[in-house]
Design a protein around this nucleic acid. Sequence first.
DNA 1: CTGAAAGCGCTAACAT
DNA 2: ATGTTAGCGCTTTCAG
Lengths: 337, 337
Amino acid sequence: MFKPTTIKDIAKALNLSTSTVSRALRGGYEISEETKKIVLEYAEKVNFKRNPIALSLKERRSYSIGVIVCEVANQFFSQAIDGIESVAYSKGYHVIISQTHDSYEREVINVEHLANRSVDGLLVSLSAETKDYSHLEKLHDQGLPIVFFDRILNSMNTHKVSSNNFKGAFEATEFLISKGCKRIAHLANASQLSITAERQKGYEEALRQHHIPIDKELIKYCKHGGRDQIEVEIAVREFLSHDNPPDAIFVASDRLSTGCLSTMKKYATHHHDILVAGFSNSELVELLNPSLSYIRQPAFEMGEKAAEMLISIIESKYPIEEFESIMLDTTLHPNGV
Amino acid sequence: MFKPTTIKDIAKALNLSTSTVSRALRGGYEISEETKKIVLEYAEKVNFKRNPIALSLKERRSYSIGVIVCEVANQFFSQAIDGIESVAYSKGYHVIISQTHDSYEREVINVEHLANRSVDGLLVSLSAETKDYSHLEKLHDQGLPIVFFDRILNSMNTHKVSSNNFKGAFEATEFLISKGCKRIAHLANASQLSITAERQKGYEEALRQHHIPIDKELIKYCKHGGRDQIEVEIAVREFLSHDNPPDAIFVASDRLSTGCLSTMKKYATHHHDILVAGFSNSELVELLNPSLSYIRQPAFEMGEKAAEMLISIIESKYPIEEFESIMLDTTLHPNGV
DNA sequence: CTGAAAGCGCTAACAT
DNA sequence: ATGTTAGCGCTTTCAG
């Protein structure tokens, strides 16, 4: 059984009190150089590490922050996590990652587990399924610092980081139009997500400005965020088999973009006639065939900002009154044709 | 500031002792139904959650397991993590993920942080840079349960899960040979990794069986596991600019495979003359161009097995004497040509 | 059926 | 310079 050495063990072995050992270990200036040396050496010898659990209990904080995302396999989120980690580590915090797989139930479980004092604050990007926010609201009301990124809960009064989804979607759609496309479908994420509404607005606005009618049959939502490939496949195949099929598809997120391409490759006889543009942070996009024009979000930077904001709340002496919403620009990367 | 309700708060509010509240909360049969009901209702009302930190301290275990991987963006690892989570959750454990980014220093920091009682055991896949294992050995000697998966430390006496790297590499190389390739280069990971040696042996054995000479100039290692794209680029470009360039490349891991393709697309004038086969668990492989024949590891299953083994050690009443090494088969997926 | 008290590992007044 | 003690939140003997 794992029985790490404790301060008590050291104290006993060295015939000192636990407080002396504790102070020596953290280099308290009141301890004689000699005692310090003895303690330090002995601690090193027995591979002593102070128990972070005990420390957390005492200090009533854990110096760790929790991150709730749908899945780390999604490159947008893995990049965001790298950003989060980079600032967290530099400020002495550890990062605990938790995946919801876009399931509401899982989100609730994970949030509750992380919340009660095993983390000092939460960075959350909502699951595609989530429509009820009380698990988060309760905690927030109790004073748990929460910062949203990407998939935001607008109704909660806290810091938020997102990318300019409207503009990104607008530019992508306009790009497709500039390529001569007239019937542009929209493959969207779950309708309750903030990003879904924003991106759809950008898409519709581009069509409007170019006098292209909006056809509701060309807009399909994936209510589980494409958790199952089949969900995407069904939507895309409906587009393909439409009486008057689209000549382009604008896809609203990472997972859906690749799912869309796979489906097209599998089922579309002449899929090169259909242009696809979509949000994606995959590092492999440039190697894809069918090719994908993509909108890239500054994921790493978003992670950094979100972490900075969260830590600033955690470390603030006074309750924060004014909350900020940061919006970062996306970039469009045309491809193919 | 976040001040969650404690048992003490409830006790005070209800004019009971903390022990009664504690017992009522966990449904102790000695408590009267009435008291139980009052406590439960009040707890619900104030959103009481027991403090897992305090619990861990008391029980001297946290019901969570730590996972050390190079990076979650790598699909092999994200799939393995999904496998780990699936068994961990079903057995009541939480999973804490920690990324090394293939840095030795980061590995040490993460291992030490997780080890001392914030997790009950560790699932580790070594970083590409790691050559000194004392940070792990020390903890293992102290009794911390450790299970290795994928990138294994052979010298440590514990459970291990890997895929049949020798066979996977052998089959891939033989596949390239069957396609008529005569000069097959090998792009390998850091030389000290278990997987590197095993895969190289499979590669060399295939060449040997087919009477193809082994040319050491056609074997290149990426000692940081391809952490920087540039590392891969240099190696691949050396292959391409060789006097007698290869007609195929066998790539030893996920990240290197895609890096290799990118470089080829970027620099090789007629990259379609060079066949590439490599280990990859990316879900996008089928959409890649240049195409990649790939060896897929059963990542999810490996994660499951590893987690099961770890939990069995954690929950074992007696010290384990006999350790198992599980090896799972890979599958080859030919592509292109 | 309920309460008082000790203890998990650590720190920080408060002695000495 | 070092020791004693209380307490972080919770569970669990041991007493009533």
